[in-house]
Nucleic acid binder design. Structure first.
Lengths: 342, 342
DNA sequence: TTGTACGCGTTATCAA
DNA sequence: TTGATAACGCGTACAA
């Protein structure tokens, strides 16, 4: 920004000192400026089209006005809803959001956190769930510890395993409740599109679901628990595999909605009808679901709230042990899992 | 960020001057540092866990590393895809993206541009289309002019009416091509869900569509051109209205996909079958369409590319007249508009 | 109430 | 090649 008007210019134009100009424009705490001087300064600023330099202000004040957000893919409705919550909360606190994306490479999270530390972001919200990968987790924990040690504060969405405040979605409770609901509807031969084996959120949902079904006396055939990517393509591929072997299942649980949508596409493509031939359920209740036929049963996660909560958590200053903010989930039964009359 | 390690700390620890430390760590242009000294500095930095302060660097260098993005709603697939393009291009240029959202209030764009100017963002990408509203446009033009005068550079997605570089989607060509394609399929009684009357993109698409149909000898009944919000709800409401009056139409063109999806929901809700009772087409080819039944005919806009192009446009320095970067569109016929055999 | 002067963390200029 | 030192734009003790 080559030719910016500075506060000194304004001060000179108004015939006051830099300090007075600063106080007049920024209304420094309990320092007050005589009315006529303030008028002169404001007029000068207006005349010169002065714009404060937020960076310089941040320097001088010792703190920036930005919060960082780390997602895997902003086009994924799961992340874009969380992002809406983050920008909303940031906005309410008069802060800006720096959006960073790993492009689906979890290991990039570490460098993004370090990047945001260089920006001196006041707070960082990491939206992606954790993996069972000590190397990555250790690196991430170290990056976050450095960041916090340098005065930043971080919040995670996912599992409280990195030593920072975490918004914990009640995945297990939701998946178990879903399993019970489906069992109550008469389903007895479930399959699970389980996502990446190391992904903790995927695993929590998968295990709680299978455990609950087992507890109800209808254990999930281990052969009917398929791994896959946590994406549309992953869901599609897993579903295709499941259907290809002619598995005897009456309901498929995809551990997130994006995968469920992929599964739905695979079913459609193979001429398998949902729910007549097989029922289908997902998890998250992403916005996209409103446009899908049949309406998909899922477990609602209040994603915008999750983003907002994580931001608020990170913004509140707080000493001591990292906090955990549980977020309840809610089973939403829709037409993709009708009561079985058979 | 209270307790940050500074470059001075590193210099002292390494027993060199501040200048040398700076050069060693940042590899200042053609200035070179003796190998052993550089080692000492790097080791000291490592030991102290030094993290450069990007803000201070920006101050000193006179330019920041951030680009601003203004959207209406990041959960809208249209904007999230553009955002993905922007973050991609920014990433490639080693820049960060500051995401700001108007929350559907077009007039807020002005303050967001001013906000980004205060941040001294190198470039600003405004993703929302223009309205036919002189007051807002004048304010926006002024804000952008100030920003550019202060050394920033801006790019718009939409209409080249604000004096800055603009990525122009070929709305009219696409809508006309769509009209011709639909006519070719046998449709003769079209309706248009036209979006907000002042929204230029909506208007371009609407008018080109109706003009093309008129030119083909099948003019659109003016009563079958309905205004509405540029949203899911807007499309739903407009479609509901259209169907309520029992309009005699064989195909409905919603001027964007999000509205088309709302229209589809309305049709479903009222028991009107698509495409058997009425065909339906949209515009944009948002990602969500892959999950919708029936597959929706639309006009593809390469949204991620649009975001990338806008960013590149803003980032290239360039003198003189604002540039226009046209982006071609492409009709994509799908099952929601089958050939009419009647 | 106003002004002076220093500090924020870094880069860049200019001597040495 | 290295080192003082002056910027960068602003906030804020401290003194007046």
């Amino acid at each position: 920004m080559p030719t910016s008007v500075t506060l000194s210019d304004v001060a000179r134009e108004a015939g006051v000192s830099l300090a007075t100009a600063s106080r007049a424009i920024n209304g420094s705490a309990n320092r007050t400026v005589r009315a006529d001087l303030r008028e002169r300064v404001l007029a000068a600023a207006e005349r010169l089209r002065y714009t404060p330099d937020a960076n310089a202000q941040a320097m001088a004040r010792g703190r920036t006005t930005s919060v960082g957000l780390v997602v895997h893919d902003i086009t994924d409705p799961y992340f874009s809803s969380i992002a809406a919550g983050v920008t909303g909360a940031a906005d309410a606190a008069a802060l800006q959001v720096t959006l960073t994306s790993t492009q689906h490479q979890p290991e990039r999270e570490v460098e993004l956190v370090r990047l945001l530390q260089r920006q001196r972001a006041r707070a960082v919200v990491v939206a992606g769930g954790r993996h069972d990968d000590d190397a990555v987790n250790d690196a991430m924990r170290a990056a976050l510890a450095d960041y916090v040690a340098a005065g930043g504060s971080a919040a995670l969405v996912g599992q409280p395993v990195l030593g920072v405040d975490t918004v914990v979605v009640e995945n297990a409770a939701g998946a178990a409740a879903l399993a019970r609901a489906l069992h109550g509807l008469g389903y007895r031969r479930p399959a699970v599109l389980g996502g990446p084996p190391t992904h903790l959120t995927a695993r929590e949902r998968r295990d709680a679901f299978t455990d609950a079904f087992a507890a109800l006396g209808a254990p999930v055939d281990p052969a009917h628990v398929l791994p896959g990517d946590f994406t549309h393509e992953g869901g599609e591929a897993a579903m295709r595999e499941l259907l290809a072997v002619g598995a005897d299942v009456d309901v498929v649980f995809a551990v997130n909605d994006v995968m469920a949508l992929g599964a739905l596409a695979a079913a459609r493509d193979l001429g398998v009808r949902v729910p007549q031939d097989v029922a289908l359920a997902g998890f998250d209740d992403i916005l996209t679901l409103r446009d899908v036929v049949p309406p998909l049963t899922t477990v609602r996660v209040p994603l915008v709230d999750v983003g907002r909560l994580a931001t608020e958590l990170a913004l509140e200053d707080h000493e001591g042990e990292p906090r955990v903010r549980p977020v309840p989930t809610e089973v939403v039964l829709r037409a993709s899992t009708p009561a079985r009359t058979a």
